[in-house]
Structure formats: structure tokens, C-alpha cells
Design a protein around this nucleic acid. Sequence first.
DNA 1: GTCTATAACGCGATAGAC
DNA 2: GTCTATCGCGTTATAGAC
Lengths: 206, 206
Amino acid sequence: MAQHKLSIRQRNVDNILLAAEQVFAEKGFAGTAMADIAEAAQLPRSNVHYYFSTKAELYQAVLFGLLDVWKQDALCFELYDDPRIVLSSYIRAKMNHSRTRPHGSKVWANEIIHGAPNLGAALDAPLYDWAKMKEAKIRQWIEAGRILPVEPSGLLYMIWASTQHYADFSHQVGLLNDHQPLSELQFERAVQTVTSVILRGIGLEP
Amino acid sequence: MAQHKLSIRQRNVDNILLAAEQVFAEKGFAGTAMADIAEAAQLPRSNVHYYFSTKAELYQAVLFGLLDVWKQDALCFELYDDPRIVLSSYIRAKMNHSRTRPHGSKVWANEIIHGAPNLGAALDAPLYDWAKMKEAKIRQWIEAGRILPVEPSGLLYMIWASTQHYADFSHQVGLLNDHQPLSELQFERAVQTVTSVILRGIGLEP
DNA sequence: GTCTATAACGCGATAGAC
DNA sequence: GTCTATCGCGTTATAGAC
């Protein structure tokens, strides 16, 4: 009985979160009405309010889910040691997410662009620690002479920006691709381009 | 007399456009109230409406001004021929704009992320033509064996994304820089990082 | 050209029946 | 857990005096 109730809740919450991620990505926080999310989730407005009492609460729930996704993409930093393997895995993972789950990236970008007014310290600190670990790894590679000396943060930003561009700016990418979304083949070429420029850029052979 | 009137108009319009660019960047289109812009421009609400009758009209005026800025950054594509010179000039110009005029970049990013609902065909076509010219130039370099073969559009996207990241994601960059905006020196290092990775990434010596 | 007052509307959130 | 009705606020845009 309690289990049944829970599963109803779980199903509705997941449904709402997914719909919210899409609508927030398309219209931004201020631009989306709770009614839009309810419609996308095929639920009455009040039902959404039952699970998330305010719009801000729902929005933050979406954001919290995203940091987990970013972290999963970077597991290769712990799994491997060779910079060639780590970075090419990381780039591919992030590009895959840009293709299969572009909405999340857009919501995140939106929030940061506006100065992260909804991202409390609850997310600042984890993000900071997580990024510093990655920078430390890059610094080790440099000190060991395994890659050319570059600013570790600058390298990370190039990877983030170049991969997330295919999600965040998908409209512009499509426009410049003769008003067509990238095909699988074109997307694979984009992965290759980012990978080869980054790797060669720090002195590795792709 | 007519000249005096014109100069008042010009002054107010410029003032409003500048204020609007900043507020739109911080709060997005839906998130900004005309009152916010009026306050930033130190004018009464109704005065803003006198020059721009609707919020959408003002927003579009801001967007139109931005494409000109992008185009100026890319003048080096016509001035020079050597890929090393052209690309390092381009990267520096865009990075300078990311530092000195970050608001514009944010407004543009916001608009594209949301699928460019306010960007009519009036801007689509110029952007398309302009980008295709740049791609053609890159293709020439490849065919002449002056740079390694990469997807021209992919290279452009990497440059756009990596440079605009310092404007659009300035909040995150500051957060990861121990809650401090980048100093002049750090910013110069960022320019060097982007330049060297891109140039080496296509087979050139920085 | 400038400013005050107000009309018209959309939205978030809640109360309360089922 | 679900749904209808409604309150109250903030916002855009305009009308009209100065």
C-alpha cells in the first residue's frame, strides 16, 4: 500500500522533473508558467503544486539533478591515468550528453548566465571542489611532462564550452547547417574535431 | 532646433539601449520589467515607452546592435591571409569583447539558447552568409595544406564557445577563481591558453 | 518631450470539495 | 492524491494632463 503510493509519487515526480527541464530550457525560469510545465507533464496545474509547492523549488530540483550528470561524465578522471584516454573519454561523454539531453545543459547555462541567482552555496561548494580536483589532475600531467603547459582551468573551460556549445547553441548550429539538425555522421565528425584540436592543442597525438 | 531635438533623442535612445543590454543580460527577456530598464537608465517608465513602444521592440534593437559587434571582431579575416595571424587576431578580439562588453554576449547566448524566438529571418540570413564566408576561408587554408584538415564549422564553434565562455559564464569562472573576477594578468593568460590550444590544434606553432 | 494615473491581463499560490 | 475556483500581485501598455 505504502509502496503503491510511493510509486505513484515517484512516477509523477519524475514526469514533472523531465517536463520542467524541457520547458525551463526553452523559456527560462521567469518565462515559464507552471501551467506550461503542467501541460507538458499532462497534469493539472494544482497537481504540480502538490509535489513542488513553488516554482523555485521545482527549478532547484532540476538544477540539483544536473550536477550529478556532469559528475558522471567525468568519472574517467578517476578510472584512467593517461591524459589521452581521460580527455577523449570526457569529451565524448559530454558530447553524448549534448546530443541526448540538451535541455539540461541549457537550463544550467541559463542559470549561470544570469549570475546563478537560484544556485545557493549548496551547489557552489560541490562544484568548486569537483573542478579543483580536475585541475589538479591536469597540473600533474603538466609537471610530469605528459602534456604541454597550459592553464588547467583554461583547458577545462575550452572542453566545457566546446562540447556544451552543441547543446546550448543547437539552434544556431542547426541554422548554419542549412536549417537542419546535425546528422549522426556530422555529430560524430564534431566529436572528432573537438577531440583532435584539444589533444593536439596540448601536445598529444589524437 | 531639429538638430537639438535629434540629439536629445539620440542621447536617450543610446542610454536606454545600454541600460537594456545590461538588464536583459542579467534577467533575461521575460525576467526583466520595463521598470528595471527605466531605473537603470534613470528615466521614468513612460519615457522608455516613448522611444520603444514595446519591450519586444527594445529587445530586438539590442540584438540587432550585437551582430555588428561580432562582425567587427572578424574583420581580420579580410585584412590578413596567414591563418596564424587571422585566428590569433580573431581570438584576441573576441576575448577583449568578452572582457569589456560581457552583457551583449549574454543577451545573444540567452536568445539562441531559447531557440531565437525574437530573431527573425532578418538576422538569420546575415548570420548565415557571414559564417559561411569564414568557413570558406578555413576550407581554403586546409586545401592549401596550410592547416590540418578539420571541420571548418567545428573550428569556428570552438573559437566562439571558448572565447564567449569568459563572458557568458563569468559567474562560474569567478566562482572557480576563488570567488574573484579574473585579474588582467589572468585574463591575458586565458587569451594565451585559448590561442595556443587552437593554433596547435590545427597544426600551427603559436 | 515628459510624467501621472489607470486599465487590462497573466500568473503564482492557496483553499477547500471530492 | 486529485481537481476546481479564486484571491492578490506584478506587469505591460496606454490615455491624457502638463
